[in-house]
Design a protein around this nucleic acid. Structure first.
Length: 409
RNA sequence: GUGGGUGUAGCUCAGUUGGUUAGAGCGCCGGAUUGUGGAUCCGGAGGUCGCGGGUUCGAAACCCGUCACUCACCCCA
C-alpha cells in the first residue's frame, strides 16, 4: 500500500468544515483590518530563505526541503511565508506604490522536523505582513488582529507575550565560559536564543541578563512604551516576557507570541514581530515592516469539538423500479441545474435502502418515484422530519422544492 | 539526530501459563416489511494478527531484527 509520507496529514471530509471555519475567520478579521490577500509560490530559490531567515538557524541548517532543479538551481519548499512575500514586494516594486501596504496569506509550509503533536512537515499558516509603517501603532495593529481572530475562535487559555530585543551581546561575552557550546555560538548568531536555553547552567548564567527596562536604547525604549500604551488603549491583554525568543532571526524591536494552554508541548499558536531591516537586506528599499503567522494545525487542535457547522439543505431522489430509475436520474440533474443540492444512491434497489441513505445524508426532503408515480407523471415528496408527503407533477418539482427548502423551521 | 509508548476487521479494542477454524462493539450490506428511514431482532461480507527471521509438535502471544505510527527532547507556527 502506498502511504502518505511521514509528517503530512490528510484532512478528510469530516474535518474540512472545521478548517474552513478557521480560514474564514482569519480572512474575515484580516479584511476587517484592511489586509489584502497575496498568493506567492510555495517554492523559491534557496538563497532567499538562507538570507532572510538566517543562515545559522535550525530551519536553514537542517529543516529545509531543498532540491536541485533540472538546471542545477537550488530550490526550496518555503518553510515560512514572510520571505516569499517580501521577495514579491521587492520584485514588483511595491515600495513605489502608496503605503502602507498590508498583505495576508494562507497556505502550506514545509520543514523537515520530527513530527509530533501540533507539528508536521507540511503544515499550514495564516500570516499578515504590514509594510511601510514604522509607527508603533502598526505593531499594535497586527498584535490586535492576531488576538482578535484567535479570541473569536474561542480558544481556551490564550496568552499574548511580548518582548524587546535588548543589548545582550556584551553581557553574554562576560559569562561566556559558563555557557554550553551551543550558546557560545549563539552569542554572535542569535543572542536572544541564549536566554531560552534549557541547560540549567546557562539559565543560571543568564539570570542577571539585562532586563527589558534597563537595556533598551532610547529609540527602542520609546517604541516599546508606545506599543504597550497602544495595547492598553485597545484593550489587548499581554504579558512581558524577557526570555521570549521565539520567532525568526530577522525580528527587531517588537517580538510577540500567543500561547494556548491545553496544547501539549507545542503551545505556540502564533508569533510575529517587527522586521525593519529585512526588505533592504533582500535588496529592496529601506521599508519598515511588521507581521505575524499562526499555525492552523495548532488552532484546529484547540478548536472546541462542538463547533456547529451549517450544512446546506439538501434533497434526496429515491427512484426505484427500472423505469423510475432513469426518470429519477434526469430529475436529479434538473434539480441540480436549478441550484438545489440533491443526491441519489445509484446502488440502492429498494425504497428502504433509498430512505436509509436519505436519512444518513440528513436531507430535509426525499423525492419518491416508483411505478405509481411514473404512471401519473408525478413524484411524491416526503418531509423527512414530519413524514408528511404530497404528490406533485414533474414540472412543479424544482420550484416546489426550492420553496420548501427556503421555509423556516 | 536522541529517548519512551503502540502496532489484531473500515473504527475502538479483547484475546488466559504458547494449544483446534482469531473474537466483540460500532459501522457497512441484506432480510424480517415484494412501496416508506432512524429503534429492535436475524443473517452476511470484511483479517498478510505491521513486516522478516528464529525458538517450538504448535506463535497474535516468546526471542532477534526491521518498518510504521505516536508522544517527548531540540527547535518552531
Amino acid at each position: 500500500m502506498i502511504k502518505a509520507i511521514k509528517g503530512v496529514k490528510d484532512l478528510l471530509p469530516e474535518e474540512t468544515p472545521r478548517w474552513r471555519l478557521i480560514e474564514d475567520t482569519a480572512k474575515r478579521w484580516a479584511r476587517c483590518y484592511g489586509f489584502q490577500e497575496i498568493r506567492v509560490p510555495i517554492f523559491e530559490t534557496t538563497t532567499l530563505f538562507a538570507r532572510s531567515i538566517g543562515a545559522s538557524t535550525d530551519i536553514v541548517e537542517k529543516e529545509m526541503y531543498t532540491f536541485a532543479d533540472r538546471d542545477g538551481t537550488s530550490l526550496t519548499l518555503r518553510p515560512e511565508g514572510t520571505a516569499g512575500t517580501v521577495r514579491a514586494f521587492i520584485e514588483h516594486n511595491r515600495a513605489a506604490d502608496p503605503r502602507p501596504q498590508k498583505y495576508c496569506y494562507l497556505g502550506p509550509m514545509f520543514r523537515h522536523e520530527r513530527p509530533q503533536a501540533g507539528r508536521l512537515r507540511q503544515f499550514h499558516q495564516f500570516g499578515v505582513e504590514s509594510f511601510g509603517v514604522s509607527d508603533p501603532r502598526a505593531d499594535v495593529e497586527v498584535m490586535s488582529l492576531l488576538w482578535r481572530l484567535l479570541s473569536d475562535l474561542t480558544l481556551p487559555g490564550l496568552t499574548l507575550e511580548a518582548r524587546y530585543k535588548p543589548v545582550l551581546v556584551a553581557f553574554l561575552k562576560g559569562v561566556e565560559t559558563r555557557l554550553c557550546g551551543n550558546c557560545r555560538r549563539r552569542i554572535e548568531t542569535n543572542p536572544l536564543r541564549v536566554l531560552d536555553c534549557k541547560v540549567p547552567d546557562c539559565r543560571q548564567a543568564t539570570d542577571d541578563a539585562p532586563r527589558l527596562t534597563d537595556s533598551l536604547s532610547s529609540a527602542a525604549r520609546e517604541h516599546f512604551d508606545r506599543v504597550t500604551a497602544g495595547l492598553d488603549a485597545v484593550g489587548i491583554p499581554y504579558r512581558l516576557n524577557h526570555r521570549l525568543v521565539r520567532g525568526l532571526d530577522y525580528y527587531c524591536l517588537t517580538a510577540f507570541e500567543v500561547t494556548c494552554s491545553h496544547l501539549g508541548a507545542q503551545n505556540a499558536v502564533g508569533a510575529g514581530g517587527r522586521y525593519d531591516g529585512l526588505v533592504e537586506q533582500l535588496g529592496g528599499a529601506a521599508v519598515p515592516a511588521v507581521g505575524f503567522a499562526v499555525g492552523l494545525e495548532r488552532i484546529a487542535l484547540m478548536l472546541p469539538q462542538d463547533v456547529s457547522i451549517e450544512t446546506p439543505r439538501r434533497v434526496y431522489v429515491a427512484a426505484f423500479g427500472s423505469e423510475a430509475a432513469d426518470i429519477g436520474f434526469t430529475l436529479l440533474d434538473e434539480l441540480r441545474r436549478t441550484g438545489i443540492p440533491a443526491d441519489m444512491d445509484f446502488r440502492a434497489a429498494s425504497l428502504k435502502a433509498h430512505l436509509r441513505q436519505a436519512d444518513r445524508l440528513g436531507v430535509l426532503y426525499t423525492v419518491l418515484l416508483g411505478d405509481d408515480e411514473v404512471a401519473t407523471g408525478s413524484v411524491t415528496i416526503r418531509n423527512m422530519q414530519t413524514k408528511e408527503q404530497e404528490n406533485i407533477q414533474f414540472s412543479e418539482l424544482p420550484s416546489t422544492l426550492a420553496a420548501r427548502l427556503s421555509e423556516q423551521y
